[in-house]
Amino acid sequence: MSTATAEHVDSQDEAHHHPSDRKYVQIAIILAIVTALEVGTYWMESVPGEVLIPVLMLMMVYKFFYVAAWFMHLRFDSPMFTKFFVVGLILATIVYGIMLTVFEFWHKG
């Protein structure tokens, strides 16, 4: 149908806006560096948990959203897709966060 044709044209247009392979490799390098930093914390035994855990979380979130934004194309694609993903993420975080709270998970540190 005309619609399907239109979509195909669109997707090819989009393809031009997609980053180059070079960019993808750069992003992978950044991700690799962050992963190396994360793993590096394993040998830093003197760092207290109150510092270590937030730093780790920050790096994890950074990697998470970098992959989602670039490799999953959420940066370039329709915000609708982002919404589905983010709603799922937020709902899961809140609901299971409450559940963990009820289990007094955070008290144990």
Binding site: S78, F81, F85, V87, G88, A92, T93
Partner: peptide, 28 residues
């Protein structure tokens, strides 16, 4: 005939994203 998908997005991709949204709760 004669009009596109309501959002202009591919049905298949939208389906996959709804599925991934759902998977968040599974792994959560």
């Amino acid at each position: 005939h004669g009009h596109g998908t309501g959002t202009g997005l591919s049905n298949n991709k939208l389906l996959m994203w709804t599925f991934l949204g759902s998977e968040c709760l599974l792994f959560g």
